[in-house]
Write a protein that binds this DNA or RNA. Structure first.
Length: 233
DNA sequence: CCAGACGTTGTT
DNA sequence: GTCTGG
DNA sequence: CCAGACGTTGTT
DNA sequence: GTCTGG
């Protein structure tokens, strides 16, 4: 599972890595963040009339049919194994795929027994940015049609493989830049061609480092979140 | 036909 | 919205 | 994901 | 325990 991540790469570098048209509006989206938590606004990249655009939306997908948005567990992850069938996700998988830019994420490792969990920060060896496979949705209030629609998103996850299994058994799907166009193509509406993108891959370009529980508190921010620290156990 | 569910994680 | 259960 | 709150009555 | 907030 992936329940926290970072996006601290300078905006200009992100705009280049994601092949976005630069604009003042996009620059504002990419303020450096070390502790992005569920329900917060996050930048995602989608196609808008054929061009990639970056927009902010709530992390925690709200199905369009939801009566009370925000009720229940937030849908921050979608299992790749079932995403094409689940009512909450299947329409978004067909027509509303997006990239969720990140440059690292956190996973909490359970100790054998009870009690403390050890957070790890997982990032590229070169600390560069990448993109999670993500979906977005648009929710409109039925009681108040004049209210602003709420856009929200979720990231697709898969089975962890390789060294990552020692930390956690699930991991986010990280897309190769060569696959960005296929993932974003709204004309492509069958799940078949998308399945290979979900294949669990050994991410040899990624490394994990233990960090302090400072990151646990969602309001804690800054480089201290990713400082290396001796493991708790 | 209408009513009710619709998600993930992890733990037991 | 769309599917399942009754 | 983790942290933190979680209730009512009545009185001032 | 379970729900809400970030």
């Amino acid at each position: 599972m992936c329940g926290r991540f970072t996006l601290k790469t300078p905006a200009r570098d992100l705009i280049a890595a994601l092949d976005l048209a630069s604009s003042d509006r996009q620059l504002g989206l990419f303020e450096p963040r070390w502790n992005i938590a569920p329900t917060q606004q996050v930048p995602v990249v989608r196609l808008d009339g054929g061009a990639r655009e970056a927009v902010a939306m709530r992390w925690g997908l709200i199905p369009s049919w939801s009566k009370e948005p925000g009720k229940g567990a937030p849908l921050i992850n979608a299992r790749s194994e079932t995403v094409a069938e689940k009512p909450s996700f299947r329409t978004a998988l067909k027509r509303r795929r997006c990239l969720m830019p990140a440059d690292g994420f956190y996973e909490w490792q359970e100790s054998g027994g009870k009690g403390a969990k050890q957070p790890f920060y997982i990032h590229r060896k070169d600390d560069g940015p990448f993109a999670f496979a993500a979906l977005w949705e648009c929710w409109r209030s039925k009681e108040d049609p004049a209210a602003a629609p709420v856009e929200s998103c979720t990231l697709v996850n898969t089975e962890a493989v390789g060294w990552m299994t020692e930390i956690h058994h699930r991991m986010p799907v990280i897309l190769e830049p060569k696959d960005f166009d296929v993932w974003l193509d709204p004309e492509l509406q069958e799940a078949g061609p998308l399945a290979p993108l979900f294949a669990p891959a050994e991410h040899n370009e990624l490394v994990a480092q233990p960090v302090s529980t400072y990151v646990n508190k969602a309001t804690n921010e800054g480089p201290r979140c990713v400082e290396v620290q001796k493991t708790l156990f």
